[in-house]
Design a protein around this nucleic acid. Sequence first.
DNA 1: GATGAATGAGCTTTCATTCAT
DNA 2: CATGAATGAAAGCTCATTCAT
Lengths: 194, 194, 194, 194
Amino acid sequence: MAKPNVISKNELIRSAKKCLVKNGIEKFTLRAVAETAGVTQGTVYYHFRTKEQLLLDIVKDICGSSWDELSKSDGNIIKQAIETAKSRCSHDSFFHKLFLTLVVSGFHNDKIREQLEGIILQENKALAENLLKIWPSSPIKGISLDTWAIILNAVVDGIALQALLSKNFPVEKTYAELEKLFIALSGLQEVENK
Amino acid sequence: MAKPNVISKNELIRSAKKCLVKNGIEKFTLRAVAETAGVTQGTVYYHFRTKEQLLLDIVKDICGSSWDELSKSDGNIIKQAIETAKSRCSHDSFFHKLFLTLVVSGFHNDKIREQLEGIILQENKALAENLLKIWPSSPIKGISLDTWAIILNAVVDGIALQALLSKNFPVEKTYAELEKLFIALSGLQEVENK
Amino acid sequence: MAKPNVISKNELIRSAKKCLVKNGIEKFTLRAVAETAGVTQGTVYYHFRTKEQLLLDIVKDICGSSWDELSKSDGNIIKQAIETAKSRCSHDSFFHKLFLTLVVSGFHNDKIREQLEGIILQENKALAENLLKIWPSSPIKGISLDTWAIILNAVVDGIALQALLSKNFPVEKTYAELEKLFIALSGLQEVENK
Amino acid sequence: MAKPNVISKNELIRSAKKCLVKNGIEKFTLRAVAETAGVTQGTVYYHFRTKEQLLLDIVKDICGSSWDELSKSDGNIIKQAIETAKSRCSHDSFFHKLFLTLVVSGFHNDKIREQLEGIILQENKALAENLLKIWPSSPIKGISLDTWAIILNAVVDGIALQALLSKNFPVEKTYAELEKLFIALSGLQEVENK
DNA sequence: GATGAATGAGCTTTCATTCAT
DNA sequence: CATGAATGAAAGCTCATTCAT
């Protein structure tokens, strides 16, 4: 009955992520993961010794893809960032649902929390570096580029949160005006630099 | 054996909130609520017909207090808002943990989601109204006051999220510089108004 | 569906002892206990929070009965003791199977081991006290009554072990000759006392 | 990937015995055996077609060594026997733990029980033969040498059992006095023989 | 009103066993 | 020979829910 090598760890993680977003962490059962992946429960357990480990592997997987995405960035980082951010906050954004679910899970699991903290720190750092390319100095005196990065990241997450809660959230409008804000800030800088 | 009225619904809700933050939604059990409140499972069940109902009552309770707080606001709304926001985002802020936990719970429970949506909408509205008091018009052309409210709220939630994930998050510094940003924006407006 | 008060803890322990002897510790499952008692697994768990606790309660129950039996002893203690011992070592003696099963279980569970240690100590003590009644002094110089008690107890357990292993073990013959040994020892004492 | 003959059946049995004593029969798993031996589960399975077979092979292994030991005996058999017996009953005697574990296992597995019965019978027989060397006739009338053998064996097992249960069991004292008992009995015989 | 014994479905986890490689 | 991925049945355990008292 044992069919060797029918499934890979990555396929299982993909199935698990689907389940997590579909059923929520409250009903995130290994049985569901197994069914989604088309294997038995025993198989899931063979690959991840515990449920917690599977959850952690999901988080690590996300960290990995997050890192990949960041390292690809170039050129007009901001425009691109806004584009990405916007894509993440459609009303049922897979990514942000997964992310927030894991964040909440991290409140009671330090291993998970630390991994997520790593993502945030990386994102903030990448953002600060990219800001440096377009803002030789901060557009407003007294606000460091690091803080700008924190704030921008916070805005993106906060908007995503609102969008996930509210079916009628004006994603387009908000991001359009957010871009104006950004342009205005960039303009300020030129003024100051004179 | 039955003791009349030994516990009120509100006490149970308070215990339930404690449990929710302490154990997370994954381990939020009625037995834990009962033990925390010092009653039996049956008693919890007597007051809330189902577990979902208890969760919903927690959400409503939060909505209520949120509303109370908003209606008290006056005078220098911004400074006060920042103060409130800051207090909510210490590394283990009870409020934001509870809020985010419920948000995630709301992903798969429309009743909860709608209640939380209501909170957000109210907060945004209250914020917009208060902004009007200090900003007769938007400091940056093309950005409506409603959008400003959305953005400000998003920043607060997003920063709280980062603070909850990161033990070393620079809460003080971030909020100090955020205030500068706000002052600068207010300054902009005066310029434009001339 | 919930029928209150259909079973008592003692009934459950009785069923559990039956299961333990019938299936052995390897297959001692709470499901089997529940079935034997005619209740659901949940009920077993309601009364004993874990499997280990149930096992421990069985041990305590045995300690209790052991103690009761000891305190009833009087008159010709030895004859009676031999009778009891003999009854315990028929080829499938419930008592000794249970006892040895728990002893082995105690090898990896200190709580169980300590309880059983208590039984042995009590038995040895009771035996020593009763020996004193019939042997004012030890029949053989250099052997304390405490040691006699240990040895006698050991003989009884050791014979039971052999009887449990061997279907053809000569219980009657062995105990008959053991009694002769005892009488001979008592005779020795009188000689020495002169 | 297959490495030829990296492990022998005997090594596996040795590992299995370790596991059995370390974890007890309740947690005696093939995975643990495999890990202890440093091979995979499949390998254990390759050598012993079932778990039961492995257990049986352990029992046979013990029978073998038991037999070896008996056949080596000579000279002052009693003194040596007591020495051996004493060595087996330190508080965590590997041998007696293993033996008792298997005895209990034998309660529900006739193949195991029969093997162990064989050991006991052999031991009793060897003991009777050796007693004959030093006791031309029984020191007490009416007690056959066979019964003496049974009783002596029983004492040894019974004492070991008490020692395994009780950390403070007076092994030295008990065996010293047991030897005195033996010497006294031998003295009796000489008297009778006159 | 309040209790707590009982339920039963479903959870995570374990494990002997199989089998293609 | 040996492996190790996969299985599936069954284990221990949890929990929302019910109900007689």
